[in-house]
Structures are given as structure tokens and as C-alpha cells.
Simulated assay, not measured.
Amino acid sequence: MDQAVRILTIEDETAVRRSLVAHLEDLDYDYIEATNGAEGIDLFESSKPDLVLCDLRLPGMDGLDVLSTIAENAPDTPIIIVSGANQVSDAIQALKRGAWDYITKPIVDFQVLDTAIERALNRARLIKENQDYQKHLEALNQELSVALGQLREDEEAARALQSSLLPPPEVQYGDFLFRRQLFPSLLLSGDFVDYFPIGDHEVGFYIADISGHGAASAFVTVMLKTLFEKHLDAFQRAQEEVIRQPHEMLDHLNRALYQSPIEKYLTIFYGVLDTREQALRFCSGGQFPYPILFDGEQINTLTSHDKPVGLFEDSIYTQHQIDFQPIQQLLVISDGILELFPRDSARRRTEWLLQMVTSGAPSIEALVERFDIENLDEIPDDIAFLSIVRGEQNE
């Protein structure tokens, strides 16, 4: 059971104070009473309340001085002034010194007080959540900074680490066979592929291409894997469902990467396949070439996509859904494949890619052989393949 909210009431008039605490008790708030400013400061420091209700006209220490002291020492604690001094100058001065709200006495309608308390507590909660999130990001960045140092010290160890983060080359989820293959242009890859079960009948999967090459880009794949695992773990503990909603997941990734000190961005296609309903929810953050769909007779592409992730703070990501029932295979390839074609427009190279894909079996092995990737002396850019095939097929 959640701990009750604790409210400190600083009020010298006994009748008013008793009226306030009786109302707070009816609302199941814990309450603490102080009859003057000095006592209020002592109780605040010893009990750490979640919210303070304070009068302005107090014996001894003035209410404004109490307000200034609390606001200076605990700026994130809501302070609501409840005063019979109904003067605009008092309200202005109180708000300048850190009050969150101002209510005049006598309180005729306690709903006004209830609304002010609820609004202040919600604001305080949001501030704390944002602080916790920032602390989490700072801790994550520190962890990632350590990981980046390790990558730079030993690229071979880094490659082993990166390889360990990849899913198995082939996994069957229900009626669908997931496969992946990765060809780095350097020792470390800026491309990454992953797939994982979400609950009993959904599978999340993504293919990502981080800007640049080498250790820094490979490091972002570690960060990417960590962020996905964080939201997957939160789902498994029934705390959130961000991992099930591709547009929300990309929004979280965008904010985390944009706020990161690493000056990197990425393109990504993230989908959640419902193997029971055979429906695909997806969101594309600049993925190119477009994902390719086979229905057994013809191919189509998923052309809907938004901006890359981590490039713009205010990027908005749109979720789409398609019926996966008629689809026999989904194939996603990173843009490194386009570097194997002669220099030309992106549109022309995409047309060549579709011709190569449709000229024979669309399996990963067949495409690797068709492009002769394994025999290339040098791969111009990282190339990643992600394939989802209905049923067990010997590719």
C-alpha cells in the first residue's frame, strides 16, 4: 500500500488549524500541526512533509520568512499559502518567494483547497519523476562511458561484447521464423538487429543503423540494447507497456539519444508482431531501404517513415498497423547494401535492389550469395539483414 501523503499545517489560529487538519484527515492525508513559524521550520526539517500549508501572519517568525526558508532548503516541496491577509501585494510577494499557490481565508469552499493540493502534489510528482529520469540517464551515460572506454581499449573484446548482444541467428516464434545476419565494414558494426518475445504472443524486433562507423557507433548499439531491455523489463514487471507500442518506444529512444552527450543518431525500424492475431504494429525512424513484404506473388514496401532517432528533439513518430495474414516474408536490409550498386540516385539504387531481391529466392543466404558479399575485399558500409518468414523454411 502506498504511503499516505504527509501535510504540514502552520497556523496560529486554533480554530482554523483544527478545521484544516480535520479536513485533511477526512481525505486520508497524514498531518502535522505547527502553531508558529519557528515550530513549523523545526517540524519541516524533522518530518520532511510532502506539502506545506502556511499562514502569512504568524507570531514571531513571519510567514514570508518561513516560506523563504523552506523554499530555499527544499525548492521541490509544494508550499501553499492559506492567509486571511487578502491583499494582492501579499500574494505577489508570496509567489515571488516560492509559494506554489495562494488561498484566502476563510475557506468557504474546501474544494478550492482540495484542487490546489492535488495540483501541487501532481506537479511535485512530475518534477520528481523528471529528476529520477535525469539521474537514470546520468547513471546510464556513466555506465555507457565506461563501456565506451573498454571498447576503445580493446576492439576485439568490444566485438565479442557486441556479438554477445545480438540475438541467435535463427529463432522460431510461433509460426514465424526470425533470422538475422550482420556484415560489419570495420571490426565493429554500427548496424544492429534484435528480436525478443513480449508476453505470450507478441514479438518485438528492430533493425538499426547508427550514424558513422567504428567504436563510437558500436557503443550506441550497446546503449540501444540497454534501453530496449529497460523497457522490456518494465513491461515484464507490469510497470508500463512502452515496449509494445513502437511509436512510444521510438519517442523514448529519441529523447534519450538526443539528450545523450554522444553526438550520434540512428535510423531504425521497430515492429511488434502479434503471432496470434497475425497483425504487425510498426514505426519507422528513417529506415531506408524500405522494408520489403512478400505475399507469395508480388512484393510491396512499407514506405511510411518518420525522422531518424536522436536527430531532432521534437520529432513525432507515427505508429502503423497492417494485417500480416497474407504476408509470407518480411525482409529488412540496412542501407549499406546500396553501397554495392554503382553511384546513382537513391531511387535508382533502390530499384536495382528490388530487382536483385525478386530475381531469385529472397532468403538471406541467397541474397548474400547474389551480392557476393562474403568474397568482397572491402565492404563499404555495414550491412544488416533481418528476415521474418511464415513457417519453417530452409533458407
Score class of each variant (00 low, 15 high):
332 V>I: 15
351 E>F: 06
127 I>H: 01
85 A>D: 07
109 D>W: 01
310 G>L: 04
233 D>V: 10
367 L>Q: 12
232 L>T: 14
180 R>K: 05
318 T>N: 11
290 Y>I: 01
373 I>E: 07
92 I>K: 11
316 I>H: 08
64 L>M: 09
134 Q>D: 08
372 D>C: 09
47 S>G: 02
18 R>C: 04
57 R>G: 00
151 L>I: 14
112 V>G: 05
394 N>Y: 09
175 D>G: 11
69 T>K: 02
294 F>Y: 13
188 L>C: 12
106 P>D: 04
227 L>H: 09
184 P>S: 03
265 Y>P: 01
212 G>S: 07
39 E>G: 08
300 N>D: 15
219 F>H: 11
57 R>H: 05
141 N>C: 13
104 T>E: 05
217 S>A: 15
223 M>H: 11
26 D>I: 14
349 R>K: 14
304 S>Q: 13
341 F>R: 12
119 R>N: 12
47 S>K: 13
122 N>R: 10
275 T>Q: 04
348 R>M: 06
173 Y>S: 06
140 L>A: 15
102 Y>T: 01
274 D>S: 15
310 G>E: 00
375 N>I: 02
61 M>D: 03
90 D>G: 07
75 P>T: 12
80 I>Y: 04
323 D>A: 11
196 F>Q: 10
377 D>K: 01
273 L>H: 05
124 A>G: 08
337 I>K: 03
61 M>G: 07
43 L>P: 00
340 L>K: 02
330 L>V: 07
189 S>R: 09
347 R>S: 14
58 L>E: 04
31 Y>M: 00
287 Q>F: 03
259 Q>L: 15
34 A>T: 04
125 R>M: 03
250 L>Y: 01
113 L>S: 07
199 G>A: 01
352 W>V: 10
186 L>H: 10
118 E>I: 07
391 G>K: 06
264 K>D: 03
228 F>E: 04
324 F>N: 05
366 A>H: 09
85 A>C: 01
65 D>I: 00
390 R>A: 11
310 G>W: 06
77 T>M: 05
362 P>I: 09
369 E>M: 01
223 M>I: 00
80 I>Q: 04
114 D>W: 01
287 Q>N: 12
41 I>T: 10
213 H>A: 08
211 S>G: 03
330 L>I: 03
74 A>T: 12
204 G>K: 03
155 E>I: 13
159 R>W: 04
285 G>H: 03
269 F>A: 06
334 S>T: 15
76 D>Q: 15
5 V>C: 06
341 F>Q: 14
124 A>N: 04
347 R>K: 10
193 V>C: 08
226 T>M: 09
316 I>K: 08
214 G>C: 11
184 P>M: 07
334 S>W: 05
29 Y>C: 01
47 S>H: 13
207 I>G: 07
174 G>E: 06
215 A>T: 08
